[in-house]
Nucleic acid binder design. Sequence first.
DNA 1: AACTGTTTCAAACATACGTTTAAAACGAGA
DNA 2: TCTCGTTTTAAACGTATGTTTGAAACAGTT
Lengths: 214, 214
Amino acid sequence: MAQKDTVKSILNAAEELFSERGFAETSLRNITTKAGVNLAAVNYHFGSKKSLIQAVFARFLTPFCEDLEQELDAVQAQLDGHVPQLPGLLMLLSQTALRAGHDSPRRLGIFMRLLGLAYTQGQGHLRRFLQKEYGPVFKTFMRLVTAATPELSDEDRFWRIHFMLGATVFTLSGADSLTAMAEHDLGKGSDIAQVVDKLIPFLASGLNAPHQAG
Amino acid sequence: MAQKDTVKSILNAAEELFSERGFAETSLRNITTKAGVNLAAVNYHFGSKKSLIQAVFARFLTPFCEDLEQELDAVQAQLDGHVPQLPGLLMLLSQTALRAGHDSPRRLGIFMRLLGLAYTQGQGHLRRFLQKEYGPVFKTFMRLVTAATPELSDEDRFWRIHFMLGATVFTLSGADSLTAMAEHDLGKGSDIAQVVDKLIPFLASGLNAPHQAG
DNA sequence: AACTGTTTCAAACATACGTTTAAAACGAGA
DNA sequence: TCTCGTTTTAAACGTATGTTTGAAACAGTT
């Protein structure tokens, strides 16, 4: 019991509620009620609402980035002068991400939603926090992607990477409603892992598109 | 003077502030101060904050959708039994969109940001409003896209359309910060129109990707 | 059993919000 | 100039928020 359970259930409740309604629309009273703890517990354990938000991100991102860093090091080690292959890099990234929400695959969707919120919603403190804390791993990944796509100009590569990021964050963050739509429109739902499977060829093909026409 | 100016400056201020901070984080006091009007003016002219939000969307979307509908009718008329071509459809959409923010191209970025917010942020009333008001035009467009991509399964097409939507909304809504990043990283900025130019081959190639591998 | 540091709790605090109100200012038509 | 409907204004209302407080409950140690 004691501290660990309170902290954990606050994080669980906050993660879910934030992803459903956004940060500003979720009150500490919503969170503490859902978590079954006292209102003051958030400020006692985390200090402020802002710190709670950052803690929610850190709980997911820290293990994910450590894992990813290891995987990337492994790739770099066995490269041995060879050029890395793009589909492999994408697979590796998606596999690591799927693994990060190891208890339920739904958790990746929840987290992608949070990530989308972090970018669209104001929350300047959050962007600064994420950049400072997890920027380096992203840089490492980008270096490998650059090596894997030598035929692209720096400019094209820059923009296409962000196109890919957009397609990913948007669809995975809306996966719940999108699979519901898919089920309704064509009688065929999908889970997150299947959506990722569909996403990868789309992204790989887009990244390697010819420069001008389609 | 009189009504028109007050209403207009409220809409202008709201559009900009909403796109910068989100809906919940922008107070009516922020908006009225920026607009240089009295606090009560919003409730007097629009009725409530919710209605203001919808009015911001309507001001952009209504002329855009009317324009798009005409263009689509024209395409359909001159089809004459032929199959529509995908790149043409995408161009048509992007041109219409760029035209909708006719005074400044920056406005399209602002509006895309709002669109992203509408999806990520709670705002159930907004999604219902958008669906009811502008759903039909979207359906028409989708019918043409379906005709233009007969080789795709309904499932693949459904998901890839949303991948495209995600890449578009995400990058155009973040165009301001992204072009700043691009300028910093590779000494080469871009305006919205140029980003759209880069986007189209990426999207077209992704939509036509082979089913399995990349 | 008494003490100590930590965690929980109910209650209150100050602040910011969206909305309402009633009076004042305005502008066009008689 | 007076009138009437519209618009603007300053002030207030009720509510919900994040945060703080001080006492109570708890767990481990001597």
